[in-house]
Design a protein around this nucleic acid. Structure first.
Length: 267
DNA sequence: AAGGTCTCCAACCGCGCGCAG
DNA sequence: ACTGCGCGCGGTTGGAGACCT
C-alpha cells in the first residue's frame, strides 16, 4: 500500500508565495495559533499543502526570525555543533535563536562548506583533508557524538579557524568576538551538549510558544507579545511584511537593506 | 549588449518517527 | 501488534539575480 499524499494534489498551488497568501497565513496563525497543519490551508482559505504552509511559516513568516547573513559567531557555533551533531540541522537551529534549519543548511552548503574546504578541512568529518587520506576508515560525524574523546578534535579545528580569524581581523569580526566567546563557552559546555543530544528542551524553544497565550506576557528576550506582534504584523501587510524589518530581533542592521531589497524581489 | 555560467536560497519531495485507534 | 495519519527533518531542485566572457 502506497503512502497517502500529504494533501490533495489537485488544485494545490505550488511555487513562490504571494503577499496575499502570506497575509492569509499570518492572519490565520495569529488568530488561531499553530494547530493541525493539514487543516490550516482549508481553514485559512489557501490553496496550498499544509506542509507548504508550515514551511512558509517556520522559514519565513515567523516574527522572531533574524534576517541576513549569519554572524561570525553564529557561523562558528554552527561549525562546532555540526562537528558534534552532523547534519542535524534542526538541532543546530534550535541553538541559534531566530535561525531556521533551512537557513542554516543553505548557509552551510553555500558558504561554510567552501570555507572549510579552502582551509583544508573536510566539511563532513571536520578532519584535516590530508589527514583524511591516511585514515579513510575514520568515522562519520554522526559517530562523533558526545563522547569525551571527541573534544580534542573539535578544539583542534577551532585552532585552525581561530588562527585564520586572528590573521585578518575586520571590525565586524572584532565586534562579534565577545559574542563569539559567549557562544564558545556554550559550545564547550559538555553538559549542554549532552542535553542537546538527549533532546532536552532546547534553550530557546521556550521563547517561541506558538500558541497564543491568554496573558500575552512578554518573554525574557524582549520579543513582542503575540498580541503586539499580531497588530504589528497586520499593520505590516499593506507594505509587505519585510518592509518592517523583523531585523529588530537581529543585531545585523548593516545587512538589512540588501536583505530586504532581495526579499522584495521575489514577493 | 547579449549570451552563458555560477551562486544562492525558497520551496518541494520523500522518508522516518511518534502517536492514536 | 498492527495500521494509518500527521508532523518534522534532511536532501534536492528550480529559478532569479549576479557575474563573467
Amino acid at each position: 500500500m502506497g503512502r497517502q499524499p500529504c494533501c490533495d494534489k489537485l488544485g494545490v498551488k505550488k511555487g513562490p508565495w504571494t503577499s496575499e497568501e502570506d497575509k492569509k497565513l499570518i492572519n490565520f496563525i495569529l488568530t488561531n495559533g499553530q494547530c493541525c497543519w493539514r487543516a490550516v490551508p482549508k481553514l485559512a482559505g489557501l490553496r496550498r499543502c499544509g506542509k507548504s504552509c508550515r514551511l512558509r511559516w517556520t522559514n519565513y513568516l515567523r516574527p522572531d526570525l533574524k534576517r541576513g547573513l549569519l554572524t561570525q559567531a553564529e557561523e562558528q557555533l554552527v561549525i562546532d555543533l555540526h562537528a558534534r551533531l552532523g547534519n542535524r540541522w534542526s538541532k543546530i537551529a534550535a541553538r541559534l535563536p531566530g535561525r531556521t534549519d533551512n537557513e542554516i543548511k543553505n548557509h552551510w552548503n553555500t558558504h561554510i562548506k567552501k570555507k572549510l574546504l579552502k582551509m583544508g578541512i573536510d566539511p563532513v568529518t571536520h578532519e584535516p583533508l590530508n589527514k583524511q587520506v591516511s585514515s579513510m576508515d575514520s568515522s562519520s560525524p554522526a559517530e562523533h557524538l558526545p563522547q569525551a574523546g571527541n573534544d580534542h578534535q573539535i578544539k583542534e579545528n577551532d585552532g585552525v579557524l581561530n588562527s585564520e580569524e586572528n590573521s585578518s581581523s575586520s571590525p565586524a569580526e572584532i565586534s562579534s568576538r565577545e559574542e563569539s566567546l559567549l557562544l564558545d563557552s556554550i559550545c564547550s559546555d559538555e553538559s549542554l551538549i549532552n542535553s542537546l543530544w538527549l533532546d532536552e528542551t532546547p534553550l530557546f524553544d521556550a521563547l517561541w510558544d506558538s500558541t497564543p497565550k491568554a496573558d500575552n506576557t512578554n518573554n525574557d528576550m524582549g520579543f513582542p507579545s503575540w498580541e503586539d506582534n499580531g497588530a504589528w504584523l497586520l499593520d505590516c501587510q499593506d507594505f509587505g511584511i519585510h518592509d518592517f524589518g523583523f531585523n529588530c530581533f537581529s543585531e545585523i542592521d548593516s545587512n538589512a537593506p540588501q536583505t530586504i531589497g532581495k526579499e522584495e524581489k521575489g514577493h
